[in-house]
Amino acid sequence: MAELTMIQAITDALRTELKTDENVLLFGEDVGANGGVFRATEGLHKEFGEERVFDTPLAESGIGGLAIGLALTGFRPIMEIQFFGFLFEVMDSVSGQIARMNFRTGGHFNAPITIRAPFGGGVATPEMHADSLEGLVASQPGLTVVIPSTPYDAKGLLISAIKSDDPVIFLEHMKLYRSFRQEVPEEEYSIPLGKADVKREGKDLTIVTYGAMVQESLKAAEALEKENYSVEVIDLRTIQPLDIETIIQSVEKTNRAIVVQEAQRQAGIAANVVAEITERAILSLEAPVMRVTAPDTVYPFAAGENTWLPNAKDIAAKAREVLTF
């Protein structure tokens, strides 16, 4: 089994599905001969040709419309938004059109569209590249939103996203692209959408998180282990819909929880998780469920981002607060 980085696992998933299903098309800005600005589509243009893997003019809304039209004619489009910060340019296509296609036509048309986009902080990008906008799309009924945190998960989840007959937004944290390698099977495999993964088992506290914060939470859990705390880390993997069962099961075992997200606090995914826990497991709780998030400001300019982003230290501190409540 090959050891792959997350971006290699993503390329592998794309290649696998382009091979498996001739209706799969891959397009976006610079995804062709250039192989994408991060090389996520490296070699695919050459392997599958211009008919299947192609560049678009530089217009995100046009890319969204293209995906809709191709879906209406029987294709299975994978569209790339070069950076998820450019989502606003294609917001109508995503939330106004793609998400509603099935409902709007009473189930007659569907939108088997995968929307891939890099996002996330910590890699010193210009403005509007790093923002965590997953909450914005998670609030739109009709969209499934996936954020993998490991190479293995990335491949299996992306394959599920592409095979899904409904639209899936697949967000790739830029900091995780090349941060570590993992064994990834060469064959096709899928990880079900909507299922969380317990990345570390523990008895005293549950950390619910996703994306780049999974690694930070695992680091915090290790630090806490030295203090004799046993911490469970749940990686949501899909943030909409939430895997409520896995979260509740864990909280009923540990009786304490914190929720960690990279995004600013307001109206976030973490708030959804807290609401589900309090509605469904309040009698199991020994302490309030608390959050670790970025502050409620606009995403800062690059030189300030590490002050803004939550980290393992912040997570461990909040965990101690809940553990000693």
Binding site: S61, G65, I68, G69, T73, D92
Partner: peptide, 12 residues
């Protein structure tokens, strides 16, 4: 919105 979608149906 239908204009961008038309480009897609045409390409299909």
């Amino acid at each position: 919105a239908q204009y961008v979608q038309a480009a897609g149906v045409g390409l299909g």
